[in-house]
Design a protein around this nucleic acid. Structure first.
Lengths: 242, 242
DNA sequence: ACCGCCCAAAGTGTCGACACTTTCTGTCCT
DNA sequence: AGGACAGAAAGTGTCGACACTTTGGGCGGT
């Protein structure tokens, strides 16, 4: 349940300089969000060292919350770490990327099969509407060009909370991070749209087998497209950037 | 004040009564293991409250490591927690169990498909040998009656580190815990063995499609068997059991 | 000049204390 | 008597300090 770092549910927009640190429930959570954001922005690129003291000083608080946040990052496998050594942002070797997309293929394909069985007709209608709206305008509702909207809708329609949490949580972070880092823009927009329409048709027909198959192919093609760009080796960057 | 300022500064073999707490890399890791064990043993049954202070006192150390361990447990979704409230061991409602087995079906099925493509002939030979050894004797090498040996072998043969980590890590914990709690012994031994042999044959034939399909069915049947036992509602248990 | 040991520096692990939040309980008002 | 409020109690969140481990550099031995 990590909607893009824009949502501020019931609170007024904070005017403070520290953006997402003051209005969070606990400071540790705030730090988690901020570090996540720093990783997304490639301010902490893959391979960067996470120094607890430095980060604490940067955020103006103690090492405790930072430590907790780093552990959570470690939990979702976004940073690697062994007992007494420094924590580092995960680095993308080709094997890891392959693993990532394979896992997504397995999970999201299955989620698509479940969705074919469990989606309501209303949900299907809404999905179709939004899909075509996205086709007309370059961007859908609010977020522009994120092809994940379609995917997330289907994943959530699987009604499997655990799969949803994995795909929309951990894997989503990783995927997004890899995209950002590799600079792989979505140059497959029209193809993706076609494939999305295919998947939608299979869902509408309640054909779980076909839905899963199509989703797998779709993801595999996207993966091939993303991987085709040779990923340069990540350089080390310290957190002590002034 | 735990390392007595005596001789042997680097290697102090602990003669203490605390079994698995002193010899781990870091104390937080030790606490993690111990709490995990307590959950397995149903000493901390589903719904039990994890009180940091009480656990710390029980383990004879500060709240810091305990806190860290609880956060890690939270990370793998074995305990639920919201900001300022107590942490509780996850409770198994039927939907959660269904979600769990579905996810396993998706992931392990796919892993099996990958294994069919990636296993070496030697691995297949070894797998067959161990499978038949298990069939002869009631128990395999060391661990008795754990049907996970076969599954884990296949999962690891998928060569996908991320899937392996998920299945043999998080999900494995959950599954094992659920088994323990529901008291669902494996009463399907002979059927399971037959199905394992089927899967092995498909792997040997390098038939990924069939391998995946068989594995999915196998897991689905196991799930149905386990779920059939009506899970009683979990009672609350405090950690301050004297 | 090379290799290994020793030592200081950096960084993580752990601790005890304090601040804040939540919950419970006892009391006061209606 | 019943319900809302205030205060205490319990528990989590955070902090600063100290202990331990790892690492990098200087020093002496060969």
């Amino acid at each position: 349940m990590q909607p893009p770092p824009s949502a501020t549910p019931t609170l007024a927009t904070p005017i403070l300089a520290t953006p997402s640190l003051s209005d969070t429930a606990t400071r540790g959570d705030g730090v988690f969000e901020r570090i996540l954001d720093m990783i997304y922005r490639c301010e902490l690129p893959p391979g960067a060292v996470l120094n607890e003291s430095v980060l604490a000083a940067r955020f103006g608080l103690s090492r405790g919350p930072v430590r907790e946040a780093v552990r959570r990052l470690q939990g979702i496998q976004l940073v690697t770490r062994e007992p007494f050594t420094r924590a580092r942002v995960i680095t993308f070797d080709p094997a890891a990327v392959r693993d990532l997309f394979e896992m997504r293929e397995a999970l999201e394909g299955y989620a698509c099969r479940l969705a074919a069985e469990r989606m309501t007709d209303q949900e299907l209608d809404a999905l179709a509407a939004d899909l075509e709206a996205q086709a007309d305008k370059a961007a859908a509702a609010a977020l522009d060009g994120t092809p994940f909207d379609f995917h997330e809708r289907i994943v959530r329609a699987s009604r499997n909370g655990r799969i949803v949490k994995t795909l929309c949580g951990d894997l989503y972070h990783l995927l997004r991070m890899y995209r950002r880092w590799s600079g792989a823009a979505v140059t497959r927009k029209s193809e993706a749209l076609t494939e999305h329409r295919q998947i939608y048709r299979a869902l509408r027909n309640r054909d779980g087998e076909l839905s899963e198959s199509l989703m797998r192919s779709h993801i595999a093609r996207a993966a091939a497209n993303v991987i085709s760009r040779a990923p340069a080796e990540a350089g080390d960057t310290d957190t002590s950037a002034a």
